[in-house]
Simulated scan of single mutants.
Amino acid sequence: MFRFEHTYLLSILVLVPVLVGFYLAVLRWKSKTAAIIGDKDLVQVLTRNYSPTRYFWKFFVAISALVFLVLAAANPQTKGEGGKVNRKGLDLMILMDVSKSMLAQDIKPNRLERSKQLVSLLIDQLSDNRIGLVWFAGRAYLQMPLTTDVSAAKMYLQNAGPDAVPTQGTVIGEALKMASNSFNSKEKKYKAVILISDGEDHDPEALKIVKDLAASGVMINTVGVGSPQGATIFDPATNDTKRDANGNTVITRLNELQLRELAQTGNGTYVLLQDPSAAVRTLQAQLATIEQKELQDDAFVQYNTWYFYVLAMVLVLLLLEIYLPERKPMPV
């Protein structure tokens, strides 16, 4: 398999048509200048050693050197032997609620931070699987498609919070739809979802989507974060507790009933998040009941790099451009 390691550098090639346009503009300028002089015989005498063909070839060689230089910087690579690592695992989508209600501190330090601790442990303990991440509040956003890249998952997790999803609410149904779209629709197994939320806003659409997911072979597991007694929400934007339109303090409560119903319908398990390590063990045991498939992990593929050959071509072209004369020899 051929690839470029730094594909973003290929965007520099947009300079090529710009330089071609500049070259054509210079040719037009030369033609207009010759026309201004007026006397064709005089122009021929003045430019008798000018060669349009040689001028073109010097430009062509120079622009080719630029193209090869960009290709060298992008580092062309081919896949090496024995680099692919095969492993058995699942396709697992982790859906995490990042709404402001997750800032409630009925579990310490707050619901969101405890959820992030859980997700971090899940990423570590389930690294043999392909993992995808969805953050949701009033809308759902795919943060990371299914991958075996653990370091990327940890990076996305660090930035999880209410600011990642500006619209507030708890659209569990939309998050489940996004997870569904991330799976291979042709497979009827090897797939699971872990939904982490306080379930505060009842989403009637969520149960229907879970039924559809279960019918397509996806196991739905849910994790409840918070307490049924509830707590106030500290709003960092106002540095005060969150209040409704009438000025009353908002109390957010864990909706265990909805989360249990979703897990039961989705052939999974419900876990109340208290100790993240214990929750991970319970979820691992549940996921172990799903048949696993062979996953091809490209994260450890070794690539052969070829930029130095392309760079050698650049050097040859630059030397050729230097020694290629623009003018033809004067007649003796």
Rank of each mutant, 00 (worst) to 15 (best):
H202K: 12
H202S: 12
D203R: 14
D203F: 04
D203A: 08
E205I: 12
A206S: 06
I209K: 10
I209E: 03
I209N: 07
I209P: 07
K211M: 04
D212Y: 07
D212T: 09
L213P: 13
A214C: 10
A215Q: 08
A215S: 11
G217S: 04
V218S: 04
V218M: 06
T222L: 13
V225M: 02
V225F: 03
Q229V: 06
Q229F: 09
G230T: 03
T232A: 15
T232M: 15
T238Y: 04
N239F: 05
D240S: 11
D240A: 13
K242C: 15
K242N: 13
N246A: 08
N248Q: 10
N248V: 04
T249I: 02
V250I: 09
I251K: 02
T252Q: 14
T252S: 12
R253K: 15
L254K: 06
L262F: 01
L262V: 03
A263T: 06
Q264H: 06
V271Q: 08
L272T: 02
Q274Y: 11
Q274W: 12
D275A: 07
A278P: 06
V280M: 07
V280D: 04
R281L: 09
R281P: 03
L283Q: 01
A285W: 12
Q286V: 09
L287D: 04
L287C: 01
A288Q: 08
I290Y: 09
I290D: 08
E291F: 15
E291G: 13
K293P: 01
K293W: 00
E294Y: 02
L295G: 08
